[in-house]
Design a protein around this nucleic acid. Structure first.
Lengths: 229, 229
DNA sequence: AGATAGTGTGTATATATTACACATTAAATT
DNA sequence: AATTTAATGTGTAATATATACACACTATCT
C-alpha cells in the first residue's frame, strides 16, 4: 500500500548536530523518527521553521521538541540548498552544531510525537541516517575538528572540572590522533586560561589527578585582539 | 502616494559579497537597485531563489543577472534568518562571498532591469546599503580576513602574474596593517607554492620586479594532509 | 609489602617568528 | 653621460614555539 504524502511548497528547516563526549568517545545526538518520510529511521534532530520565528530560534525550539534539550549555544555552520534533498518537496536546511556535556542534562526525552526517542551514538560507526543527514553530520564533524585548534570548544564538552588527561583524551578523540602528554600539558597551561583547582579527582583507584577549570574571563582577555571566526 | 507591495510567502534569497582588489584597495561589488523596496539604493547583488534550482546555482544566476559576472567560485558563509529582514515578508537569505580579479572580466553590466548598474566600491567608507546588507557585508569581510591566514584566497584577487609587492599590499589592505617586507617574502616563498617566472613587470618607471604565479598544484600537494575549513 | 595504574615533570633540538637597513637596478630627467 | 628617482631584493641575530623523548611519584587495592 502506498502512503500518500502531501506536496510541500518551498520551506526551510533546521537540523542540529549535537556533539557530546563520554567514556573517551565523541558522540552525536540522534533521534528515531516517528513520522513519514523515513519513519523509524535514525536522523539528526530537525524540522520545519515556522513563519514567525527566526531560524536561530527555530533551531532551539525544534531541538527541544525532539530531544528535551534547551538553550544550547548552537552555531550555524552550513545551509544545504540542493533541489532534491527531501522526497516531499523543496526544503532548504540551515544546519547548526553545538557541543554539550553529556549527563549535564536530565534524561533525553522527546516532547513531541515526531521522535520516538533521542540517544547518543558514537561518531565512529554511525548508522545510515535519513535524508542527507550523513553528509550534514560529516560537514559538522569536519568543522569542529578544525575549530578545536583555534577556539575553546573542548571545554563545552567536558564537565566544569576536569583533569588534563581528560582534556587530552578529548583532543585525541576529536582529532583521531595521539598527542604527547608532556607537550600537550605544557601548551595548554602556557595559554594561561586554565585555572588549577585545589580539588582533586575522586573515586579512582590510582593516584588522583588535579582538577582544572576553563576560565572564560581570562580567555577573553588573552584573545580579545584576535580575529574571530 | 503609497506604493502597494504584495505580501510574500516564506521565500529564500541569496546575496553575494564579491571582493576585488584594485589600486591597492580592497573593493566590493554593489548594484544600484531599480526596484521597490529600496529602489535607487545601493545593495549587494541578491534576489529570490527559484523553486527548481539549487541555492548555489541561484547565487550564480542572480549574480549574473545583476552584474553580468558568471561562474565565480562562490562560497557560502552565513544564512540570515531573522524574521523582519525584509519589509514585504519573511525572507531567509543565504549569503555567499567570492574574490575576483577586477578587470579580468569585460565591463560590469546588469542583464535584467532589477539593477540599474553594478560598480566597485572601496570597502572602507561604504555607503548605506539596502536591507541588512551592511551587516552581511561586515560578516563577509570578517570571514575573508580570517581566511587570508589559512587559505590561498589572496591569489583569487590578483592577476595571474603578480609581484611580491603586490601580494604584500593585498595582505596589508585586507588585514589593515603593515607587514615587514623581508619577513613577508621569506614566509611566502618558504611555502613553496609560488612559482618564480622568467618574466618581469612592465611599464613601470623604476626597477621592474620579478613576476610570480600561484601554483595551485603544488599548493594542493603541500597541504593535502591538512584539515580543510 | 608489593603490585597496579595513571599522574606529573625537564631538557635538548629543530623550527618559526620577529626586528631591523642598505646596496642594487631600471627608467626618467638633466 | 651623469644624476635623480622610486622601488626591488636581500641576511642575520634574537626570541619564541614546537617536537621528541623516559622515569620517578603517588594513591589505591590486594
Amino acid at each position: 500500500m502506498e502512503i500518500h504524502l502531501p506536496h510541500l511548497d518551498s520551506v526551510f528547516s533546521t537540523d542540529c548536530v549535537i556533539f557530546g563526549f563520554e567514556a573517551g568517545e565523541l558522540k552525536v545526538l540522534l533521534i528515531e523518527r516517528n513520522e513519514e518520510p523515513f519513519k523509524d529511521w535514525y536522523a539528526l534532530p530537525g524540522n520545519i521553521v515556522g513563519p514567525d520565528e527566526s531560524v536561530d530560534a527555530a533551531a532551539q525550539r525544534i531541538l527541544y521538541e525532539l530531544t528535551g534539550l534547551h538553550d544550547l549555544p548552537m552555531r550555524q555552520f552550513h545551509t544545504f540548498g540542493e533541489v532534491n534533498r527531501h522526497p516531499q518537496g523543496r526544503v532548504v536546511t540551515i544546519a547548526y552544531f553545538a557541543l554539550i556535556r553529556i549527563g549535564g542534562q536530565k534524561d533525553l526525552m522527546p516532547i513531541t510525537q515526531y521522535a520516538r526517542k533521542a540517544f547518543w551514538h558514537p561518531v565512529n560507526d554511525l548508522p545510515t541516517l535519513a535524508f542527507d543527514h550523513t553528509e550534514i553530520f560529516k560537514r559538522a564533524f569536519k568543522k569542529i575538528r578544525a575549530k578545536l585548534n583555534y577556539e575553546p570548544i573542548a571545554f563545552e564538552l567536558l564537565p566544569e572540572k576536569f583533569t588534563l588527561t581528560q582534556l587530552q583524551s578529548l583532543y585525541e578523540a576529536v582529532l583521531s590522533k595521539q598527542l604527547d602528554k608532556r607537550n600537550f600539558r605544557k601548551k595548554m597551561l602556557s595559554y594561561g586560561f586554565l585555572k588549577e583547582l585545589a580539588e582533586k579527582q575522586k573515586g579512582v583507584s590510582y593516584r588522583a589527578a588535579k582538577l582544572y577549570k576553563f576560565d572564560r574571563r581570562k580567555y577573553a582577555k588573552i584573545f580579545q585582539n584576535e580575529i574571530a571566526s
